[in-house]
Design a protein around this nucleic acid. Structure first.
Lengths: 258, 258
DNA sequence: CCTTGACCCTCACGTGACGTGATGGCGCAT
DNA sequence: ATGCGCCATCACGTCACGTGAGGGTCAAGG
């Protein structure tokens, strides 16, 4: 009977308290499929699976009542659940990104001594509902409220020649960096700083407000996302790291890290 | 006295209920700086600012008790708060990303008929604590748990000629799509399907496992992120949308949406 | 002037998802 | 047989509000 887990073991594995498992048992959400002679709860593999489902939905902000409905929905199999959970997580992630952008905007504003209008400050509020029941109306909003959509709207108006020019400018910066790297110039040198600043203003002008904090974020992403990394590495090996370092150095110059 | 807000107005602006504001008043967390003769709560601009602070911390999972401590911390000014909040949000976003990656892994596994080991399934648990007190130990974990790090390791080994070849292949796909679009072929047609599939396998081969769910995600990002959008739009206007539709259509063919 | 309807007030109890003991039964090692 | 750690079931506490109940306030309209 080693394939059955006790409450304590499962609790530890799942990262929840014993009381939580008791509670889920009480309300019939995750009931151990067996009990020992002494009345100990004995969780089987299937129970663990179910708990995993429950916890995933819980983490997405659903109430236990809703979770129960979701996982007992007969027209949705495990894969459907995973897809749904994925959707919700993407929404969560993008919402976090939107809030980060909003904070960056405020930080930028404060760094420049500008006070945002009350309206702009309150915009931050509108983007979510402090967690919880956004789940049901999720898709409805992430069609239009999304922060990315903003920049999308901004970019939507560009014609082909605009894009060509924009890209040409971006390529010029990239080539500049590649040359600087080949020439052995340091990533924190004057040339690299110039290029970093040009890049930042380029993004700011054509896409969205890109303050130094966000520019740091971009730098990190260029290293983390292989599609960006590839873009730089194919121009010159080591360029992605070089550009990353330059952006950070430039950000440090203008806004010493806290 | 137009610069003072009533509960209802503020509640609407802030996206919370009147009861919540009453509650915050009761516990002294956000107290209106004035009352009208009739006893109506009158919130001034400073109160709004404070509420914004509170709500931001709340959204990050802090209890009201903790929020009270945080914002009454005299050695932290507004900027410090914003920076801290930003850090936490970045953590949240990355955690969501990690969970998405985990779900994609499971989806991939299921699509291939493989069942993940219990260990691998339980890994999902470990990545967080269902929300709440992760706040304090945040940075400590998000240094190495990050999902991106994986693909970074994989791409680290490529030399310049590899990158050149990889990029050439990617460009070939892009040009194929541009031609198809110019030729008026539908985004769900055979040619587009071929290209979409080639792209998916290209990503899978050189970067990371890219199943159909993730490929859908990529498609969405190509539309959402202006840097990607620009890449496609500069080749042919409307191409970003076209590619997006093609990826989705291709995913639908292989894995009908649930 | 008086009503109507939308908003405001203060109790005060209800709720959801557990936390936190209290009290007592297993189970295995010394 | 006697600790020690884990298990069981009540049962009340808590936190952040929800949800009326019962009653004043205010600007607009008949």
């Amino acid at each position: 009977m080693d394939d059955h887990l006790t409450v304590g073991r499962l609790a530890e594995l799942a990262g929840v308290t014993v009381r939580t498992l008791h509670h889920y048992d009480e309300i019939g959400l995750v009931t151990p499929s067996a009990r020992t002679a002494a009345g100990y709860r004995a969780y089987a593999a299937a129970d663990v699976e179910r708990l995993r489902e429950v916890l995933t939905y819980r983490r997405l902000g659903f109430g236990l009542r809703e979770v129960a409905e979701l996982i007992s929905d007969p027209r949705a199999d495990a894969v459907a659940h995973l897809r749904r959970q994925r959707e919700l997580l993407v929404g969560q992630r993008e919402q976090a990104a939107a809030l980060i952008a909003a904070i960056d905007k405020e930080l930028e504003a404060r760094a420049m001594g500008i006070n945002l209008t009350p309206q702009e400050q309150l915009d931050v509020f509108g983007t979510d509902k402090v967690g919880g029941e956004w789940a049901d109306e999720a898709r409805e909003r992430w069609g239009d409220t999304d922060a990315y959509q903003v920049s999308q709207r901004r970019t939507a108006g560009y014609a082909k020649e605009d894009w060509t020019r924009i890209k040409a400018e971006a390529d010029a910066v990239l080539n500049g960096f590649a040359e600087a790297l080949r020439a052995g110039l340091p990533a924190s040198g004057a040339r690299a700083m110039d290029l970093a600043e040009r890049h930042r203003q380029h993004i700011s002008q054509y896409f969205y407000e890109c303050g130094y904090p966000m520019h740091r974020g971009l730098a990190d992403m260029y290293l983390a996302d292989p599609r960006f990394t590839g873009h730089y590495e194919s121009a010159e090996p080591g360029l992605a790291q070089y550009v990353h370092d330059a952006f950070h150095a430039n950000a440090d110059r203008h806004q010493p890290a806290g």
